[in-house]
Nucleic acid binder design. Structure first.
Lengths: 339, 339
DNA sequence: ACACGGAATACAAACGTTTGTATTTCTGCT
DNA sequence: AGCAGAAATACAAACGTTTGTATTCCGTGT
C-alpha cells in the first residue's frame, strides 16, 4: 500500500539523448526512422527509449508541427448503435493515415455541440467530422474554421458525405406496395415533417402509384412507450384501418408491434410493419423486422477520405457510397384481403 | 466556390498582446481573470480576444502546465448503450471540475485497448477511466503509470468503482424462486464460467434453496441468431424441461424468446425468461422483459470522483454506489404446474 | 519634495518537440 | 597525404503558453 508512484517524472527525449550520448535532435530523427542517422545509432536509441519507457509528448509535437494528428468526431447520441458503426468506419480509415479519432458526445444538444467543437479547436485537431449536426449551417460557415469540416448526412453543407436518404425509404414503400398494400400509415420522428426525407419518400411513392395521401395516417413517435400505445389506439380507431405501417426507425416499429399485440392485433397477419436502421435487435425481435440498413461503416470511411482531400485543398470528388439496403424479414406480408 | 480560407493562421496570445498594447503575460492573466490585472485592462483584453476569435492552444498550455485537463475513457463497445450511459455520468461529473472526457473505442480487443491507453498517455491525460478492461491487471500494474487509473467493474484492480455484480442476479433468481420455479436454466456469456458473477449468483441461490445444480441447464450464447435457436432446441430436448431461464443479458433473452416462439413455446406461460441490463428495448419488446438495471450513470459520476481523489494522492473512500435494481415485467410468471 | 508600498505591468525562462543549418567525422579517390 | 564530398551528428531557434521575478507607475503620508 501507499506506494507513492505518482510524482513520476516523464521521460523526455533529452533524457534519452543524455543516456545515449547524442543530441536530442538525433534522438527524434532516430525515433522517426530518418535516413540521416546511422543504423547503429537508430537501433541503440530505439532500444534505450523502449527501455526507459519513453512516451512521446503529443502536446510538444503538436506545438511545433502545428498539427495534432487528431480528428474530432462529434457524436449526437452514443446510445445509438448507428453512430457506433459510423465511428468504427472512421477509425478504420483514419488508422490508415496515421490519424486518430477522438470522440465527444453531445446528447443531441446544440450547446453541447458548440462546446465539443470548441474543445476540438483547442485540441488543434486536423479535421472535424460532424454527423447530423444540430447547429445551424450558418454556425459552421461563420466559424471561419481554421480546420476542415466534413458533415455526414447534411447535404446542404459545404463538404459532406451522405448516402441517399430517400432511396431506402422508397424501397420500403415499393416493397409494401408490391405486397399489395394500398393503405399505408407512416410514423414520423421528432424532426419537422418538411425536413424528413423518409416522409418525402413516403409521399412520393404514394403519388407515383396514385394512392391518396391521408393526413390521418401520419403518426408521431417521441421515443416513449406511451407514445407507441397512443399510436396503436389511434390506428385501431381508424376505419378503414391501414394494412401496413412504415415506421421511421426500428425502435418505433418494435414499440408499435408490442402495443398492437397487447391489443390482440398481430403482425404481420393483421398489419404489416416496416422499420428503418437495422439495429442489432431488429433481427431477433418477434417478428423479425423488415427494415433498411444504411452503409454506416462505409460512410465513416468515406468521410475520413473526404476530410483528407479537403484538408489538402482539393475539392473531394463526389463520394460514391453504396446504396441503403432493403432487408425483408417477417414483419411484412400481403394484406389480409389480398390473400 | 474555391474560397481559399484554409491557410488561416491561428490567433495567438501575442497577437492579442500586440493589438492591446500590452505584454503577452498580461493577456494570459487577464484571460484567466487574475487579480493582478486592472479591471479596465481585463475587459479590454477579453473584448479584443473575442473579437479576434481567439481560441486557446491546448498543446501549449498542456506543455507548460504539465496537465491537459483531459480524462481518457477507454470504451470496449460503443455499440452497447450500457457504456453510453456510463460515459454520460462521467461527462456530467467531469464538467463540474473543468475536466473533459475524450473517448476511444476498442472493439473489445486487447491490442486496441493498449493502443487507446498509449494515445491517452501521449495526450498527457490527467487520468484514465477503464470500464471492463480487457488487458490483464498485470499490464496496468507494470505500466508504471504516470497517470492515475480507475477501473470500472474490476474489483481486483488497485482503484476501481464497481457495483455489486452479484446482487442483481441474486434478486433475479430469488424473484424466480419466489414465483415458484425450481427448475431454472442459465444462459452464460462469452466469459469463462468461473469469472462470471452472474453464474456464481445463480449457483449460490440454487444452493441456498437446496436446489440441485444441473450442468445440462447451462447454455452458452455467442450473440448470433443461430445460437439462440440452438439453445431453444437444446431446451426443448430436455426432460424435465426447466420452467424458467435466467439469461446473462437482455439481447440473449430476447433472442431466446424469439426462438421459442418460433417453436410454439410462449413466454411466460410455458417458460419464464429473465434478462439483465435493462437495455432501452427491453421494455418495448414482447413480452416486456424482467431484467436488472445497473446504475451506470451514477457509477460514471463516482468513477470521476474517485479518479480525482486518486490523483490527489488520497485513497478514495470506498465509493457508495446504489444497488442494481430488479425490474419485474411480463416475461416472468409462476410456472405452469404451480398455477 | 521624498521615500514607501502596493498595484499594474513587463521581462524572460521554461515546457518537450521538430527542423533548418552548421559542424564534425568519415569515406574513397587521386 | 590531402581533399572533396557525403554521411552523421550537433547547434539553435521556434511553436504558444504560463509563471516567477523584476520593473515601472502611482498615490499616499510625512
Amino acid at each position: 500500500m501507499a506506494d507513492q508512484e505518482r510524482p513520476r517524472k516523464r521521460v523526455t527525449i533529452k533524457d534519452i539523448a543524455r543516456s545515449a550520448g547524442v543530441d536530442p535532435s538525433t534522438v527524434t530523427r532516430a525515433l522517426q526512422g530518418s535516413e540521416r542517422v546511422k543504423d547503429a545509432t537508430r537501433t541503440r536509441v530505439a532500444q534505450i527509449a523502449a527501455q526507459m519507457g519513453y512516451v512521446p509528448h503529443m502536446a510538444a509535437r503538436t506545438l511545433v508541427k502545428r498539427r495534432s494528428g487528431l480528428i474530432g468526431l462529434v457524436i449526437p447520441d452514443m446510445t445509438n448503435p448507428f453512430f457506433a458503426t459510423l465511428a468504427r468506419g472512421m477509425e478504420n480509415e483514419a488508422a490508415k493515415h496515421d490519424l486518430r479519432i477522438v470522440i465527444n458526445d453531445t446528447l443531441g444538444e446544440e450547446a453541447a455541440e458548440r462546446e465539443a467543437i470548441h474543445l476540438f479547436l483547442e485540441l488543434d485537431v486536423d479535421g472535424l467530422l460532424v454527423p447530423m449536426a444540430r447547429c445551424p449551417q450558418a454556425y459552421y460557415d461563420e466559424l471561419q474554421s481554421p480546420v476542415p469540416v466534413v458533415h455526414i448526412n447534411r447535404p446542404d453543407a459545404r463538404h459532406h458525405v451522405s448516402c441517399d436518404r430517400m432511396q431506402g425509404s422508397i424501397e420500403i414503400m415499393q416493397h409494401l406496395i408490391a405486397l399489395g398494400h394500398r393503405a399505408i400509415g407512416f410514423i414520423r420522428g421528432p424532426a419537422p415533417p418538411g425536413q424528413e426525407p423518409k416522409m418525402q419518400a413516403y409521399r412520393q411513392v404514394l403519388e407515383a402509384h396514385d394512392i391518396r395521401y391521408e393526413p390521418d395516417w401520419i403518426f408521431r413517435f417521441d421515443g416513449s412507450t406511451e407514445s407507441s400505445a397512443h399510436i396503436a389506439e389511434r390506428l385501431l380507431a381508424l376505419s378503414p384501418m391501414p394494412t401496413a405501417v412504415f415506421a421511421w426507425n426500428d425502435v418505433s416499429a418494435i414499440g408499435l408491434i408490442h402495443a398492437l399485440r397487447e391489443r390482440d392485433i398481430s403482425v404481420p397477419s393483421d398489419l404489416s410493419v416496416a422499420g428503418h436502421d437495422n439495429i442489432q435487435l431488429s433481427g431477433v425481435v418477434d417478428p423479425p423486422l423488415t427494415t433498411v440498413a444504411w452503409p454506416m461503416y462505409e460512410i465513416g470511411q468515406q468521410s475520413v477520405r473526404s476530410l483528407l482531400s479537403v484538408s489538402q485543398g482539393s475539392e473531394p470528388r463526389e463520394p460514391r457510397i453504396p446504396a441503403p439496403r432493403l432487408i425483408v424479414r417477417a414483419s411484412t406480408s400481403g394484406p389480409r384481403a389480398a390473400r
